[in-house]
Computed example of a mutant assay.
Amino acid sequence: MHESSRLPVGIIGASGYGGVQLVRLLQDHPRLEIAYLGGDSSAGKSFADLYPHLGPHLNLTIEAIDIDRIAERCAAVFLSLPNGLAYDLAPALLERGCKVLDLSADYRFHDLKTYERWYGGDRQDSAIAQSAVYGLPELYRNRIANAQLIGCPGCYPTASLLALAPVLKQGLIDPDTIVIDAKSGTSGAGRQAKTNALLAEAGNSVGAYGVARHRHTPEIEQICADLSGHEVLLQFTPHLMPMVRGIHSTIYAKLRDPNLTTEDCLTVYQAFYRNSPMVKVLAHGTYPQTKWASGTNLCYLGLEVDARTGRIVLLSAIDNLIKGQAGQAIQCLNLMQGWEEGLGLPTLCYYP
């Protein structure tokens, strides 16, 4: 391990959107430095050739994936890879003493049968998967601080769970009535060319996808069950929006007590997130917009009780690439190192 006043970290999968967000965010982190960039198809290329705007700030070449070389140089490793690849790499990195933060779905599930049912694959790493901690700091801060392996949440689950957590934890809603209507920018589809993400296809249009079968559904249900104390079955429908960044979730659920007011629920949310610097609970009548969260590691939350229907309407907005991906992973590593969780993370957007 090379000596430095900063913690040396590696990024495997550095050429994708998650990887480049990590690279960008780490430029502003006072206690982390990039010691290794790894990739498969991009190995041997200068990072500046792929992302010229970062060329003046970073003189590194993407290298072939070599576990021993990574462990030699890095104390912690971010795996920014497609689903199904991290579980082949994480065990060897952990064995060599690296902390691992996986941005894919590979280590988000307690039950690997659930993973295999929704993502496929033949998992042989059950013991290691059991040691993984779900990387949502606002809910599992203490567990993350003591973990060696983090399964970082998806972007839709982050926005949805932060909105739902207080009412689930306090038992204020009937979990079986949860309906999540969520929207994402096109960067959520990744950097590989996909027809539905082309400007000519996605511009000036809004459409649902993955209806009744989106892979983030069991992930959201798993954490909702953890928060409420029993199994949860919910409805989740994602939509693609003609924007690059952002997740917006509008969530509906039936209140157990029809006499609860918006002010009552806002008090619950303000108390629940009083020690969570990355969550901003908005005043009554103000509802989150994706633009406010763009380029930041923040989650904006708003809510309204509909006395007529007896439902609560929860609203959240995040940047899918930062709080929904790379920034949240850094937030977790901050906690694992015993640092302030928001260290080096942006909290103010450029507006408009």
Rank of each mutant, 00 (worst) to 15 (best):
L303H: 04
D306C: 12
G302Q: 10
T267K: 12
V268M: 03
C265R: 01
L333C: 05
E304G: 00
N275H: 12
A326E: 09
N320Q: 14
T286P: 00
E263Q: 06
D306I: 05
T262Q: 07
K291G: 04
L333I: 12
E304V: 11
Y300R: 02
Q337L: 15
Q325D: 15
A283T: 06
T309Q: 12
G302F: 07
Y269R: 04
G338Q: 10
E304I: 01
P288Y: 10
K291M: 12
A283N: 07
L321S: 10
C332S: 13
L315T: 14
G324R: 01
R274G: 01
A307W: 04
A326F: 04
P288A: 11
L266Q: 09
L314Y: 11
L266W: 00
P277G: 05
Q289V: 02
N320T: 10
A293F: 14
M336L: 14
G295A: 12
G338W: 07
P277Y: 09
C299H: 01
G295W: 05
D306Y: 06
C265Q: 07
L314R: 02
I330C: 04
Y273I: 08
V281D: 07
D306N: 14
L282S: 03
A329R: 12
V313I: 13
A271P: 00
N275F: 09
C265W: 05
Q337P: 04
A317K: 03
A317V: 02
W292D: 08
L315P: 00
R274L: 09
M278D: 14
G295M: 07
K280D: 13
L298C: 10
L298M: 14
N320G: 15
G302L: 09
G310W: 10
K323G: 00
C332K: 06
G285Q: 06
K323T: 07
G327S: 10
T267C: 11
C299S: 12
G302K: 13
A293P: 11
G285N: 07
N297R: 10
D319M: 03
G295L: 14
C265A: 07
V281L: 00
G295D: 14
I322Q: 01
I312Q: 04
L282Q: 11
Q337K: 13
C265D: 00
P288Q: 07
P277K: 02
I312H: 05
T309N: 03
T290H: 08
I322E: 04
Y269G: 05
L282R: 08
P277L: 02
K291T: 11
Y300I: 07
Y300H: 15
Y273A: 10
L303T: 06
N320H: 12
T290Y: 02
L301Y: 04
Y269M: 05
K291C: 02
C265I: 15
Y273S: 14
R274F: 05
L303N: 00
D264E: 12
P288W: 03
S276D: 14
S276Y: 06
W292I: 04
L282W: 09
W292S: 08
